[in-house]
């Protein structure tokens, strides 16, 4: 896998570094990746729920 880079503010990076250390992550990269994965999973779940709701409405099973 090719790693990508993103830019965040130095202040935010510093804060993330502190939390990563406290939470026992090996690196701030690992910490941020974990947070992103969790948030994206939440968005996926919300999208899935919305898709089902929309389909039920279109079929007339929900008002």
């Amino acid at each position: 896998m090719i790693d990508a880079q993103i830019k965040i503010s130095v202040e935010l990076f510093g804060k993330a570094e502190q939390y990563a250390r406290r939470a026992g992550y090996a690196s701030v990269d690992e910490f941020i990746s974990h947070i992103l994965e969790k948030e994206l999973a939440k968005l996926d779940e919300a999208e899935a729920q919305e898709l089902i709701k929309e389909r039920l409405k279109n079929l007339g099973y929900l008002s």
Binding site: E47, A48, Q49, L51, I52, R55
Partner: peptide, 10 residues
């Protein structure tokens, strides 16, 4: 495809 996955999960 998305609905299939959503329904399976549901």
């Amino acid at each position: 495809d998305k609905l299939r996955a959503s329904f399976a999960k549901h």
